[in-house]
């Protein structure tokens, strides 16, 4: 079986961290990924940029609706994810608008964040 582990937290907790605490957390994550990789358990994973960088795409009546911010409809549940390789946000939004559930749900497009180099 394959499983997706989704990571949630309040960004305010991260924002109130000292630089040292943030650095240590990143290093801990890097070490964790290495451990999982050694065990042959890691397929892929990627931290995301904060929600400020998020954009939501919906398609209704064949019209692509783009809005600032993360998806906020509490009636909708997470149903899947795509990791896309796009030149810029315009291309990413174009690709996202062709994901079929965009016609009745929402696709949140968020740039990934690269982990800092290992110490």
């Amino acid at each position: 079986m394959k499983y997706v582990a989704l990571v949630y937290y309040q960004e305010s907790i991260i924002n109130s961290m000292t630089e040292k605490e943030w650095h240590d957390l990143n290093q801990e994550c890097i070490a964790g990924v290495e451990r999982l990789t050694d065990q042959g358990k890691f397929i892929t994973g990627q931290p995301l940029q904060p929600i400020e960088a998020a954009t939501t795409v919906r398609v209704r009546d064949d019209e692509v609706l783009i809005s600032d911010g993360p998806f906020a409809e509490t009636k909708e549940q997470l149903a899947g994810f795509y990791l896309l390789d796009a030149n810029d946000l315009n291309e990413a939004l174009q690709l996202a608008s062709r994901i079929p559930p965009a016609r009745f749900g929402s696709i949140e497009v968020r740039p990934v964040r690269e982990l800092p180099p290992k110490d």
Partner: peptide, 24 residues
């Protein structure tokens, strides 16, 4: 400031949209 940060972080390009996207 936020808008400029989003342009940078989400990589909103400086470009005139392609013909297909232009009307929208």
């Amino acid at each position: 400031v936020r808008a400029k940060r989003k342009i940078r972080e989400a990589n909103i390009p400086y470009e005139v949209p392609e013909r297909r996207e232009l009307p929208e």
